[in-house]
């Protein structure tokens, strides 16, 4: 699940659809309701703990990056200590850390994250514009990746071990091996500058999604092709597929209707997990495509020592990731009781 410029998703063993289940614990069967409740409670408490540590760390670390008052007064001629003190006062930087942190935590609940140090724009307003942009890009990247990897994964599974399987695997690894910002710049040169088909940057209509989503999507494809292939291989071995085939249904129907539907749930769970990872890796791509998302926001904020914006962006992203992981955990825990004791 750790991600970055190149997205790689490590899925803990317990979450694998076909992963081996610990034999010693495998036979425990269903738990009573009370245990389900305690499992949920435990997971939620853990998530709350993580939220507290993450926000605390972020708020604290940000304050080590430098004095925003100095930032704001750069280039303003002779700046006296008094001027700096005035600015710090106005930004409420003189308050003890714990007071500043508490203000921020309250903001998480009320949605009021204060004002940007650079220009005083409401941070909530900035986030409310940037978050949808980032989510939309992450979602379209997932869609691109899924649109590529489902047919490829199925094809690879059907032709397991044959040349097609190998070619698909190698090609998807090629996609994973590109430095993505570089790929992005090359795509811009070809499709925007030379062919002038697509807008080089910004978020303006559907066409502006194509290049960023493809760049991000290609990275996920290697992982997703493998996931689809593995899931399909298992499904294809199952009896009812043999039955469906025996009934004389067309191969397309068998693969895309019956088999795909059967492995939809584990696949969707993975895609959910990837989504969190995508959010973290999107910063670089946002920068190249000048995408008005959280990454661009965070990048400007750290450059300008804009504490309120930076801590809000990181926290919102972290909360999203924690939330998604929690949901996946709970879903899995409920579906597969053996995991609860882990």
């Amino acid at each position: 699940m750790k991600t970055g410029g190149g997205i790689s998703i490590a899925i803990p063993r317990s979450r694998k659809p076909s992963g081996r289940i610990d034999p010693a614990r495998g036979a425990l069967g269903r738990f009573p309701e009370a245990l389900v409740a305690s499992f949920l409670l435990k997971r939620i408490l853990q998530a709350v703990f993580v939220v507290i540590v993450v926000t605390l760390t972020v708020s604290f670390a940000i304050r080590l990056t430098g004095d925003p008052a100095l930032m704001l007064s750069q280039g303003a001629g002779s700046v006296t200590e008094e001027d700096l003190a005035n600015i710090r006062e106005a930004l409420r930087l003189n308050e003890p850390f714990i007071v500043q942190y508490w203000g921020f935590v309250k903001g998480l609940f009320t949605g009021d994250f204060g004002r940007s140090f650079l220009g005083g724009t409401s941070v909530s307003l900035l986030i409310s514009k940037a978050l949808p942009a980032t989510l939309a890009l992450a979602l379209s990247s997932m869609l691109v990746s899924i649109a590529i990897s489902i047919p490829l994964g199925i094809h690879a599974a059907v032709h397991k071990g044959k040349a097609a399987d190998q070619v698909i695997r190698i090609l998807s690894l090629v996609g994973l091996s590109f430095p993505n910002f570089w790929l992005a710049i090359m795509l811009v040169l070809v499709f925007s500058v030379m062919l002038q088909w697509l807008p080089p940057s910004g978020m303006s209509g559907l066409s502006s999604f194509v290049m960023p989503a493809v760049t991000m999507g290609i990275i996920l494809t290697a992982t997703n092709v493998r996931l689809v292939r593995t899931a399909m291989l298992e499904t294809l071995r199952s009896q009812y597929i043999q039955v469906a085939r025996a009934k004389g249904l067309s191969e397309t129907t068998v693969l895309y209707k019956h088999a795909l539907r059967n492995c939809a749930i584990p696949l969707i769970t993975y895609f959910g997990l990837q989504f969190g990872g995508l959010l973290g890796g999107i910063v670089v791509i946002e920068r190249v495509f000048n995408w008005p998302g959280l990454g661009t926001l965070a990048f400007d904020a750290v450059a300008g020592r804009d504490y309120p914006v930076l801590q809000a962006v990181i926290s919102v992203l972290s909360l999203l990731i924690i939330g998604i992981n929690l949901l996946v955990d709970i879903a899995y825990g409920l579906v597969d009781p053996r995991i609860r004791t882990r």
Binding site: K2, V50, V54, V283, V302, I314, S318
Partner: peptide, 13 residues
């Protein structure tokens, strides 16, 4: 905690 912090943002900070 580590997994909840997006890499590039962690990096720039």
């Amino acid at each position: 905690v580590q997994l909840a912090l997006p890499f590039i943002l962690l990096a720039i900070t």
